[in-house]
């Protein structure tokens, strides 16, 4: 088997990535503003400093090479939890690292969409715009034990760095050189391990096609995603409302500057 992770880490911040809304839990749709609800005319504010610092700390701890110049891009797709129907996501600011014998492809920052429940058709935008750090690993994991080991060490690292206590692990699984299946909606280490085990067995029986599936923690199985979440072409475009094309993170005497032109 070949397993790789796209780990979404929610750094501990007071406010959201591109607006001042609080990130603390509240009644639905109260921690919102024109920016994180995609009202026409709204523009992103400067990115959250705590989130950027956390990202740099993490990139260094994962032995990544840091990139001076990083752009914030619009990633376009339609989905009920995405107010602008594009997500702001940065180019990688850390690349080619390694941790616990697993290659780290890249790390970038992005914003969380809201919460959409397909069963009820209800959306809560409190989470929309919250900062996320995404760590992408190489598909170097070839056993459940290695997967457990990696995730437990990664979780411990986050605790040690004081960055976050929340991870979501999108897990990519393939067997015998077959198609890669992406499994989303995994919120715990045990969930990830169960999902991997289920997928390995399912792919051996049913075969595998390139697709996105959702993990159901109640049944510990994966099911095909109801709505198309991944598209072939996101039409990435640099966010023109954040001054100009490039952005760079420079740690200067402990302070972070976010450069754009």
């Amino acid at each position: 088997m070949k397993v790789g992770f796209e780990l979404h880490v929610t750094p501990l911040t007071e406010s959201k990535m591109y607006c001042d809304c609080p990130t603390k839990n509240a009644q639905p749709n109260l921690q919102v503003c024109p920016i994180c609800t995609g009202q026409p005319g709204s523009k992103p504010m400067a990115p959250n400093e705590t989130a950027l610092r956390a990202g740099i700390k993490l990139a260094k701890a994962l032995n990544c090479t840091l990139n001076e110049s990083v752009s914030v891009m619009r990633k376009h797709y339609f989905y009920p939890d995405l107010p602008n129907n594009y997500q702001l996501t940065s180019e990688p600011f850390g690349e080619n690292g390694s941790f616990n014998n697993v290659g780290i492809t890249e790390i970038h920052f992005e914003e969380d969409p809201g919460q959409y429940d397909p069963k009820s058709g209800l959306v809560d935008l409190n989470r929309s715009g919250s900062p996320l750090l995404e760590v992408v690993t190489e598909p170097d994991i070839d056993s459940i034990e290695k997967a457990r080991d990696f995730l437990e060490e990664f979780s411990a690292l986050l605790g040690f760095l004081g960055i976050s206590q929340k991870i979501k692990a999108d897990t990519n699984v393939s067997i015998n050189g077959g198609a890669r299946v992406e499994v989303k909606n995994i919120g715990s280490i045990s969930g990830a391990l169960n999902a991997i085990q289920y997928e390995v067995n399912r792919q051996a029986k049913e075969g595998a096609v390139l697709e996105t599936r959702h993990y159901d923690k109640d049944t510990m199985t994966t099911k095909p995603a109801r709505l198309k979440e991944t598209v072939a072409d996101y039409r990435y475009m640099r966010e023109p409302n954040l001054p100009r094309p490039r952005a760079s993170l420079q740690a200067k005497n402990g302070s972070t500057t976010y450069s754009t032109t």
Partner: peptide
């Protein structure tokens, strides 16, 4: 054209 298409993504009637 490119920027307008992006700006108009949000208008799909789901929230307003």
């Amino acid at each position: 054209f490119a920027e307008f298409a992006s700006a108009m993504q949000r208008f799909d009637g789901k929230f307003f």
